[in-house]
Design a protein around this nucleic acid. Sequence first.
DNA 1: TAGATTGTTAATCGATTAACAATC
DNA 2: TAGATTGTTAATCGATTAACAATC
Lengths: 209, 209
Amino acid sequence: MDKKQVSLAVIRRLPRYHRYLEELLSNDINKISSKELSERMGLTASQIRQDFNCFGGFGQQGYGYNVELLYNEISEILGISDIKRAVLVGVGNLGRALANNPDFFRHGLRLVGAFDVNPDIVGKSVGGCPVMHIDAIEPFLERNQADLAILAVPPSVVMAVADRLFELGVRGFWNFSNVDIDIPGATFENVHLADSLMTLHYRKRNNEN
Amino acid sequence: MDKKQVSLAVIRRLPRYHRYLEELLSNDINKISSKELSERMGLTASQIRQDFNCFGGFGQQGYGYNVELLYNEISEILGISDIKRAVLVGVGNLGRALANNPDFFRHGLRLVGAFDVNPDIVGKSVGGCPVMHIDAIEPFLERNQADLAILAVPPSVVMAVADRLFELGVRGFWNFSNVDIDIPGATFENVHLADSLMTLHYRKRNNEN
DNA sequence: TAGATTGTTAATCGATTAACAATC
DNA sequence: TAGATTGTTAATCGATTAACAATC
């Protein structure tokens, strides 16, 4: 489909473009040049044009980019309007925070089920979903399809949980357990908040940007 | 001090090395070669050696690396044992989850104060700290020094909050508000969980990685 | 000593930036 | 038309990988 694989560096910039364009839209700015956008975002105009041209030309020579059109194109590329049915596994503090974050729901995430092992939590509800025991996940996923799993379980069990969900057909994992996982055939986004903290500390001490 | 500025790419890999070395240690493995480590981590041996040599030679030719020594060196570089006094601003679901995450405390973070504007939350306690009204932050920071601020406030107010804290001497910001901030003279780690989600969705749909 | 593996230099690869022809 | 700005090719830069001499 794509003429060439788009590099991960470009892909990771797309949500950022999306945010800046959203802000432009909300400020009723309907035209922007790569130069102007580059100044707002702290990138080079060249990079912006290269990035957009990975997906086809969205601009108009001599004019610039129509903000709404560009915004819609990037939304489309990122699949923001696609509904992504997600199960949450691990309803601790972090799991609860993720399940209740309206920002994710704005980007197409829909929580369809939540699971934990703690009897104090099972039976309660989170983000509008009843929390079930993890052993209910097999029958649940047989009746309800899920695109993504949000993993907010302790590191010691995350691999087993991921394998179990993969067996049940889940192919996308948003993993907050601070362990790197990869299962061939599935896509993992391994989030490492502790790494982020350590990096901040290092950079602060070394006065870098 | 450093002979040359170490690139951000290297720095962002350090916490990852740290995690893998920690695991080796807990498995009583006390010697590792760059080749062995590269296979476990999915990197090249060459990159590992280059990375470590940004900070000086920690290995021994013909032998490899002593795991404990290497672990300690990287801990030192990252400043993991340094106590980082942090204030939390914004005690919503995410703020609460961050404040209660024992993983961060293992890496030297100490919550010294928490602040919010919501009268239902002010007076409660989070992560062992009483939640104060944001307007109490000036007197608080005059009496208590803080190295870092964890920002978990809505995007609309985050810039103002950051400026206010910067004025009070805070120079490190762990910003979860999904807005890119930079104040010259301070170090920002802008975390974008929604971006991470969008990237996952894109990658999953495009069957990469 | 011989074998192994580092530290480090050189080569390669990919990503970013610059330049400019195309064109609105 | 002239001016502006894109799309795209070429040049540069930096990061990764390969190679190998040093040495434990």
